[in-house]
Amino acid sequence: MAPMLEQTEVAAPGPVPDPMLPMPYRIQRVRQETDDTFTLEILPEDSSSRFSFAPGQFNMLYVFGVGEVPISISSNPANVPLLKHTTRVVGTVTKAMRKLKRGEVMGIRGPFGSHWPVEDATGRDVVIVAGGIGLAPLRPALYRLMAEREKFRRIVLLYGTRTPDDMLYRRELEQWRGKFDLEIQVTVDRAASTWRGNVGVVTTMIGRAPFDPSNTLAMLCGPEIMMRFTVMELLKRGVAAECIYLSAERNMKCGIGFCGHCQYGPTFVCKDGPVFALPSIAAILGKAEI
């Protein structure tokens, strides 16, 4: 029996804040990252903004008159209210977003969704597996890990991109590698003969990556098929399912569980995700057209 709402006799005090209302943010910098990705750095117009977020969460970004898209936050959570969003140009809204210039204003709603369990990684090895722009929602987690590097054991980033030129945040990663004992392994789908690194899918690196499967927390973000095979390899190496987290992606129109678009089996990616512990979606991971 569906429980019924009791008729309330008294209205709640004060107006309900409207979660669909964007807040204006001004663009401080537009940075071309790769051929088809760029990063917007933005600050709230409202100087009293108390915006904060956890690594892995996303915002809804609105371009005046064009539309709104969910984009993960890719900046350092310690640097709020400055926000960075790395975006790939794939559709109408992201195309319009790429044309925005420093000084222009866009709308932001958020932050929404679940986050990477960075704190749970204390005292453990951390394996981060990213595919392409999948590194963007993981970068805030890397900032957190680097900020308290001593709390964690080995930190391994396995990163796969289409070509060497599609690597994101290259300089920053190299700095971290030098400064913080971060193991980075990169592989590409294809490369010119000058490339001396790995060629192949990112999953092939898991078997020999330096981590202790019995004491590891894994965070994955990339194309669904990449995450599915990465999960298989991690499980094969003995990482427990509940220590594997992945970030899912679905169409979203609201970000707050009203529009229904982001349903993924029993979950709403916008509020139950985007970061899921593997057991909560294991039954549907890889199923076609869910």
Binding site: M20, L21, P24, F64, G65, V105, G107
Partner: peptide, 16 residues
């Protein structure tokens, strides 16, 4: 209609 917005220069105003 959820809201309206007006452009003002480089900025915008969101009107509930």
């Amino acid at each position: 209609r959820l809201w309206q917005a007006a452009r003002n220069g480089k900025g915008m105003r969101i009107l509930p």
